[in-house]
Structure formats: C-alpha cells, structure tokens
Design a protein around this nucleic acid. Structure first.
Lengths: 249, 249
DNA sequence: CCTCATTAGGTACGGCGTACGTAGAAGCGA
DNA sequence: TCGCTTCTACGTACGCCGTACCTAATGAGG
C-alpha cells in the first residue's frame, strides 16, 4: 500500500518504467489504466499460488496450476507476472503481509519485542513451510517486506545501534528463524527418512572414526519440556548476538 | 569410508539394503561386486555436476547434462543415482569434502579455531555459489559432512558445552555463513538489478511511510576498509552467541 | 562353464516455462 | 462520436526436464 504519494506523475520522463523494463516486479506498475480491466490482481494470484504451495509443496506451483486455480488460461498469467520468479516474489511478499503488528508495537524492551516478533515469524513459516527454502535464494523487498523492515528498525531503535548494524541484526535473526523452521520441517519428515538417518549415524558412530560425534549422540541432553524450548534457547543467543554493540562483541 | 564393519552380511534377509530401499543415498552401497565394473563413480559424477553448476548455475545441472559431460547415456546415470535429489546430495557432500583440515587442527582457542573454520567455509561457498540455496533444503549428512561435524565438535570441545549445544552451535554458524555467502552473491548480481533496487528503496524512503528505513539508508555507516570486515564483524557476534553457556545467555 | 545380477543406454510420456500470434475490449485524442 | 492505440485473454507450439520401462551386453560366483 505505499501509494499515499504517487512519486511524480508530472516528471518529464513520465513513462511508468523509465528504462527498458525493471527486473523488480515491484517497480512495474500493476495497472496503467489503459485497456480492459484485468480480471485478477497480484494479491489474488499470490493467494492462489500460496494455497497450492501450502497443500502440495512448492514444486506443485506451476504457471499452469496457478492459472487453472484462478480459472484463467495459462498464458494469461504472463500479463500479470513476466516470469515465474516474479510469481515467487509475490508469494513471499504475501506471506510477509500476514504479520499482524497491532500486538507487536515497540515497548522499549528490545529483547522482548524481538522475541515476540520472531515467534510471529516462526508461526508464519510453520503455516507456509516452503518459505525458508525460497527466501534464501531471493532477497525480495516487496512492500510488505518493507513494512517488516520498518517495524524491525522501530523495535530496535532503543538498542543504540546504528542503521547498518540493525539491518545486519535483521538479517541474522531472519536467517535464524528460517533455518530453524526448515530444521523443524525436515525433522518432522517421514519416519522412514528418520529411521534411515538414525541407522546411518549409528553406523558412523560405531565405526570409531567419529569419536566426538559418537559422544555427542550418546549423551541425551536435557529433555525439552516445551516444544519451543530449543527454539527459545537459541533465539535468546541470537538476539544477544544481534544486539551486541558494534565495537567489540 | 564408514565401511569398516559391514552391518551383517549373514542376515537371513541379506539383501544389501535390509528394508526396501533406503531414501538416503549414503545407505545404498556404491557397488555390490556383481556384474560389469561401473564406468563411473559417485565422486566423478558429483565432480562433473559441480563443474556445470559452478559455470552455469544450478539450473543447468540436469541429468542429461551431467550424463553428457561424463560421456554416458542419460539413463545410465540412474544406475548410480536413483533420483536427481541424490545427485544434489552427492554434490553437496563433495563440496564438504573440499575442506583441508590440516591447517585447522584444534588449538584450544575455540573462537580462533571457529573463525578460521568459518573463513574456510566462506571460501568454499564463494567457489560454489549454488551451495547455500541448496543446503538449506537438504540436511545432507554424507561422509564428508560427517567429517566436518566431527571436526567442529573437536574444535568446540574446550567450550565446555555439551554435545547438543555444540550441534546447535554448528547449525547456527553454518546457517550464518551460508546466509552471508548468499547475500554476497545477490549483492554482486548485475548492476541493473542493483540500480532497480536502489530506485525502489529510494522511492519507498521518499514516500515518508518508512521513516526508520529512510534514516537507516541516510546514515552511511562506517566504511569497510576490508572487504571481509562486515563478515568478520557479524561472525564474531555469531560465535559469541553459539558458544554462550546454555543456562543463561 | 553356466547363471544371473548388474550395467549401458534407447525410447517415450507427461509436465514444465514461455515465445509468439490472434482476437477482442476499453481508454483517449480528434 | 469515431477510430486509434494499447491493453487483456488465451491457444498453439517448442525445447527442455525427470524418469518409467525395456533390451542387450557384460563379467563375477557357484
């Protein structure tokens, strides 16, 4: 929704796309006003694609499938999305648009605010397990990601860090949450896979070639009473790292 | 090489794979000894695929391309690799096999050892820019990854952390290095993309909707004299977080 | 030596992203 | 108002992809 001030429709080179054609889909206007009204919108397209990805995985998201879900011809989709990559951009930004910041207003307690934000994020990634694998490949700075960034910067303002350090903190935290969600996902994958893995690790440990590994797997570690305990434990460390003053750590 | 103890070749169901067929390629024996000698090996196949991926990106790695590079028929590859996913597993483990641990022996200084390890890792990811996007999707515990894990556990032994905490530390550090390499990669992507992004961010900042974002981009931040300075800075934070004692952070 | 698991590789199928072309609808200048 | 221009919708077609299935040839084990 960053349309409160249309940039400058009176510019001399007022073509909607000054150069040839921007690579970023967010720089392409969704609608120029000429011709028939489009039957769909970026939002509805992203929503349809997300339904498919949630239900059947990212591989099931094809231009044909999404178009069919919208009741459109395959090639009609290309009027909205120049390449499939851009469809993925739309999907990611739509997920970023799911955050509800109304309960996440900055309280002045940086650490607590970030903890709550990370949990909101983890919840979103659990709803959409295909996100982590995608977001690592595409930076994706759609309008909703911008709102997220703005919120993060607001929340970390009391930390005393400069803008650059806070952007690095954002990347650090984001990466951690994505990685954790991905770990959860593969850990929850079929028992077959897990049994295979256990057998393989067991054999490796028994081979005597990996003494530290064997020791690490032999010790049980503290049992997690709370399913999110391991997340929270690491999260605290990451927040500390992210907010550490720049000079020395 | 974890074959010093073949599990039990005298089992009644002495098929090389006890169950039906393991999902993990590392549990499938590379060779059973019967029939003609294979013309290729997992290692050579992975090497061929990596050459393609380094030169033309991961999308260029197809079963046909790899087979052709080996001088083999397309379908012959399937004698070595049951599915393409497993080819990717082989590639990842081959990269993990590039580490030279001879200069990385544990010195007792945990932080310094981890710093050197992370730099070795970053160098490998720079050689193979397709790795980060892949490794997030597949846990991949091939023999070389096991050696890496073993080394990491050995290096972090003086930290006083238990095995579980050190495995979490490994994941944390790994994830950070991958994310940084990926960031470097997209930052180095075409000037067109970068110019587009700058324009988009500028417009967003100018809209007044994102005051913190605008402020963060207005302040220049300390200039990096060393190209790896930003990596080192964040790396120090991550190491600190990873090695923090478990009880409290 | 015979037997048969194993390797090599061809053919074919369904699905993918998308270039290209055509037909029709709608905003805009005259 | 007309007609020009630009948009949308979508069918067809091409070249790739992963891989199921099949046939031969090969060579180690009994």
């Amino acid at each position: 929704m960053p349309s409160s001030k249309p940039p400058n429709s009176s510019s001399p080179t007022a073509a909607p796309t000054p150069g040839e054609s921007p690579e970023l889909i967010w720089l392409r206007p969704e609608r120029t006003g000429r011709g028939p009204r489009p039957a769909h919108s970026r939002t509805s397209i992203a929503a349809a694609a997300i339904v498919i990805a949630d239900a059947e995985g990212l591989d099931a998201v094809s231009m044909r499938r999404v178009a069919a879900a919208l009741g459109a011809g395959t090639m009609s989709l290309y009027n909205y999305v120049p390449k499939k990559e851009h469809l993925l951009d739309l999907m990611l930004d739509a997920v970023a648009g799911e955050y509800d910041y109304s309960g996440l207003a900055p309280t002045g307690d940086c650490r607590a605010d970030l903890r709550r934000l990370a949990h909101e994020q983890l919840a979103a990634l659990r709803r959409h397990p295909w996100v982590p694998a995608l977001v690592i490949a595409r930076p994706g700075l759609g309008p909703n990601a911008l709102r997220y960034t703005e919120h993060f910067l607001a929340v970390t303002e009391p930390s005393g860090l400069d803008g650059t350090a806070r952007m690095e903190a954002l990347a650090l935290l984001n990466g951690f949450v994505c990685q954790y969600a991905q770990y959860e996902r593969t850990a929850a994958a079929g028992p077959k896979w897990q049994a295979d893995l256990a057998g393989y690790l067991g054999r490796a440990a028994a081979s005597g070639e990996f003494p530290h590994l064997a020791a690490a797997f032999a010790s049980p570690g503290p049992p997690a009473n709370n399913p999110d305990a391991v997340f929270d434990r690491s999260l605290d460390r990451v927040i500390t790292a992210a907010l550490a003053p720049v000079g020395r750590v």
